[in-house]
């Protein structure tokens, strides 16, 4: 193995990290802004992928597909939100119910459990061909095209979120997350804020699903399996490296960095042959645990320095 193999592997991870970063952003909105876990993630990710691949196979243009797929996720989030706020069902249970239902809906949408579309209908094709036209080696062009797609989409999403959270409405969302009772006593309709965040986050996650299935060249009903853990790991790794006094923009950027680091580590471990791929899930769990522990260890270290050895 030479240095360029290693670098290419990291470069490939950058493309995968950017596309999966949207999942981490979606989880960030629920878990950190709204401070409520949402389990619709795996369902809406697969739903976005299913819609995208079915439409592409049916001959739709990828631009249309990337606009419709998030709507599917938004609908899923809306259902979770309505069940949670109007029927007063626990948030975790409502997410689970929607994910279970989406399994059957995905089968219905795709008509089978796996679906693929011709490779030249995918979102990265124009960029890839343009790069090859510029004289780039085809494999590098493939990896670069997904990085460019990822950068554009992630930049759009982060910019939109940044400006959203500066508006009065956005601030009312953050207020609802911080202290629901206080927000309500200030005249904020907290139910509508909760539903909105679920709609928004699941739309972003479905968009991620729509992009990822194109990178994998096929959607399956099991596309969403394990995606919650990947997103959560990316989020937690990103948070550990986030500086203390960060605004919303910096926080979101570090979440994206977390996704990249996650995929780099997995990719390097696979290519180096250090660990069998059987161990990647174990590695992911260990990484997340370490990332979660770091703040605690930092605190212990500080205490020790402040009080001396005891």
């Amino acid at each position: 193995m030479s240095i360029d193999v290693f670098l290419t592997s990291i470069y490939g991870a950058l493309g995968q990290g950017l596309l999966h970063a949207l999942v981490a952003i979606g989880i960030f909105l629920n878990l950190r802004v709204m401070r409520k876990p949402d389990l619709t993630v795996e369902g809406s990710f697969a739903f976005g992928g299913a819609i995208a691949m079915t439409m592409l196979a049916g001959g739709s243009h990828f631009a249309v597909v990337l606009m419709i797929a998030p709507l599917g996720g938004a609908a899923a989030g809306m259902v979770t939100g309505l069940i949670h706020t109007k029927l007063k069902i626990d948030g975790i249970i409502s997410g689970l119910l929607v994910t279970m239902a989406l399994f059957s809906i995905n089968l219905f949408v795709m008509g089978s459990s796996n679906i693929s579309a011709p490779l030249d209908t995918f979102v990265n094709t124009p960029i890839r061909l343009w790069l090859v036209g510029l004289g780039m080696q085809p494999f590098n062009a493939l990896l670069t095209s997904y990085i460019i797609v990822g950068v554009i989409v992630v930049a759009l999403v982060i910019t939109a979120l940044y400006f959203l959270f500066r508006t009065e409405f956005g601030l009312s969302i953050r207020a609802t997350g911080s202290n629901e009772y206080m927000a309500r006593s200030n005249g904020i309709n907290t139910d509508s804020r909760k539903i909105f965040v679920l709609v928004l986050s699941n739309a972003i996650i479905a968009l991620s699903g729509a992009l990822v299935v194109q990178q994998q060249s096929g959607a399956s009903v099991h596309s969403g399996a394990g995606i919650l853990v990947i997103g959560l790991a990316a989020l937690v790794i990103g948070e550990v490296i986030t500086p203390k006094k960060a605004n919303m923009l910096i926080k979101l950027l570090f979440v994206v960095a977390g996704a990249f680091i996650y995929f780099s580590i997995i990719s390097v471990v696979i290519i180096s042959g250090l660990m069998s791929t059987d161990a990647t899930r174990l590695l992911a769990a260990a990484l997340t645990l370490i990332a979660l522990c770091i703040p605690k260890i930092k605190q212990l270290w500080k205490d020790r320095r402040a009080y001396g050895r005891t």
Binding site: D4, V5, G12, F139, Q215, Q216, G218, I266, T277
Partner: peptide, 30 residues
């Protein structure tokens, strides 16, 4: 072996290409 994880299957394929293998063999639709 991707262990049933689609993202890992993509990583593996990319890594093989980076290692300039002469051929790739694959089993399992995804």
């Amino acid at each position: 072996n991707a262990n049933g994880d689609a993202a890992t299957a993509t990583t593996i394929a990319n890594n093989f290409l980076a290692q300039r293998v002469d051929m790739m063999f694959s089993v399992g639709t995804t």
